[in-house]
Each structure stands twice: as C-alpha cells, then as structure tokens.
Amino acid sequence: MKTLLLSLMAAASASAALVEKTVEYDQGGTTLEGFHVYDDAVSGKRPAVLVIHQWTGLTDYEKGRARQLAELGYNVFAADIYGKGVRPARPDAAKEAGKYKGDRDLFRARLKAGLEVLQKEEHTDTAKIAAIGYCFGGTGVLELARSGADIAGVVSFHGGLDAAEGKAAEKGGVKAKVLVLHGAEDPNVPTDQVLAFGKEMVEAGVDWQFVGYGGAVHAFTQKMAGNDNSKGAAYNEKADKRSWEAMKVFFAEIFE
C-alpha cells in the first residue's frame, strides 16, 4: 500500500498533465454525456473513481472534483445520470432528480452505465474502483452499493440515505465498503433517516462508516450554496476540507 501511495504522490507532483475529454454513451436509448480525466504522467493502469453529480446535473463543479482526483493519480469518470444537455436549474432540478429517486431501477441503470464506461477505460485497474457522489449523487452511490456493484467502495457527500421500498441493502449483497460524510445539521436528512440507514447497514452486514460534521448543513462541500445555514444548504469550509481528507484515507484503505 505504501508503494502505491508513494507512486500516486510522485505522479501528482511530477507534472499535472491532465488529459480531459467528453464521452458520449448510451443507456436505454438515451444519450448521456460524461467527463473523463486522467494524468498522463502516471503510467499504466491505476485505481479509478466514478463521480456522480448533484441535482443540477453534470456541471463544472463535478468536473473540478474529477480534476482534483486525477491530480492524485486516479483515472476518473464523471457520469451523466440525466442525459446529454439536461442540466436543470432550480426549481426544475428537484423535479428532474425526483424522476430517479422515484424510480430506483432507472437510477441504478444510469449509475451502472457510467460505471461500465469507467470499467472499460484502458487506464482503469478494474479491481480498484470507487464511486463518490454529492447530494443527489451521494444518494446515487449508495444505490450503486445497494445494487451489489462489484466495486471497492463508495463515498456519499451530504447525500440522502433513504432506501426505496424493496430496494434496501440485502444481507451479504453489498460488496462495496461504504463511507457516509454527513452534515450533522442537515435538515434534508432527519435523524430518523440517519438511524434507519445505520440499521439497514448493520442488518445487511455492510462494512460502513458514518461521519457527521458539526455546524454543517446540506451541500457543505459546495461554495455555490452560499454561507447561510438557515437556508438548509450552505458551504462549510472546515467540513469540506475534513470530508475530502476522510475520503483520501478511505481510498488508501480500500485500494490497499
């Protein structure tokens, strides 16, 4: 593991020669448009990360996070759940996100399609894949884990934790390790949902971790959310930095 970390750090510091491209792919007859990025200073196959967007679709925010991950030496694909050109602003974003939260089979199919793009990419070490997601995407990566996807781990940043009826994690059915990074004062994820999620994970025998950040509400990693906690969604610099470090520690473990 130490060798892997040293090689990734060396690559990141060498020359961040990032290669980026837009990738079109299909699911169920719908054209999707994702974003692929990697550092060509790293040679050969490497651990890979799938990034799932928040409720306004794949934006510069997720692309920025993808670049950060690529600079750490990972092969990264930011998936598109909604479809090419579907990038709704508020309040339409809630309606679009609701389509997938209300149809978890469709949600899982779109998540799987993005994962398959990353799995087939030539730079991916298919034994070392993780998925991360923000808000809507945080809900998404948990759905990916519940579906039994054969990946090393998932990280949910301020995502919804509820399982749809009949879609909860099944005993022995979750292969991925799970890390949930949560705003302890997030009004969108009430305490009963947190407790129900913990019960679900325990009963399914999942290897899971949960970190709650005091003073943080929903969307705490996103500067575009503003800084007014009373609105229920706001950026929190401390929680943002702490959660990113927690993710890196988690990756060091699951990619060992």
Score class of each variant (00 low, 15 high):
Lys95Glu: 00
Val202Leu: 14
Tyr74Thr: 02
Ala145Glu: 10
Gly137Ile: 04
Glu116Asp: 14
Glu237Arg: 13
Lys63His: 08
Glu24Asp: 15
Thr30Cys: 09
Asp150Leu: 00
Gly166Gln: 07
Gly28Trp: 07
Gly159Phe: 05
Gly44Lys: 08
Gly205Trp: 05
Ala17His: 11
Pro91Ala: 09
Asp60Cys: 13
Phe197Glu: 08
Ser43Asp: 14
Gly29Ala: 08
Asp40Leu: 06
Ala70Pro: 01
Phe255Leu: 02
Glu237Lys: 15
Leu32Met: 11
Val19His: 09
Glu24Trp: 12
Arg90His: 11
Tyr25Arg: 11
Gly114Asn: 05
Leu115Ala: 07
Val206Lys: 15
Pro187Asn: 07
Gly172Lys: 14
Asp125Glu: 01
Ala11Gly: 10
Ala89Gly: 10
Lys45Leu: 03
Tyr82Thr: 07
Glu245Leu: 14
Asp103Met: 03
Leu4Trp: 02
Phe197Cys: 07
Tyr100Val: 04
Phe157Ser: 08
Tyr82Phe: 10
Glu200Gly: 12
Gly166Asp: 05
Ala233Met: 03
Leu179Gly: 10
Glu62Phe: 00
Lys177His: 13
Met247Trp: 08
Ala48Thr: 05
Asp150Thr: 00
Val37Ile: 05
Thr124Lys: 06
Glu253Phe: 07
Lys241Ser: 14
Ala12Pro: 01
Leu32Arg: 12
Ala14Gln: 06
Gly214Arg: 04
Met224Phe: 08
Gly34Asp: 02
Lys120Asp: 04
Lys238Tyr: 15
Pro91Ser: 10
Asp192Glu: 09
Thr59Asp: 11
Gln222Pro: 06
Ala12Glu: 04
Gln222Trp: 11
His123Asn: 11
Leu195His: 12
Phe255Trp: 04
Phe255Gln: 02
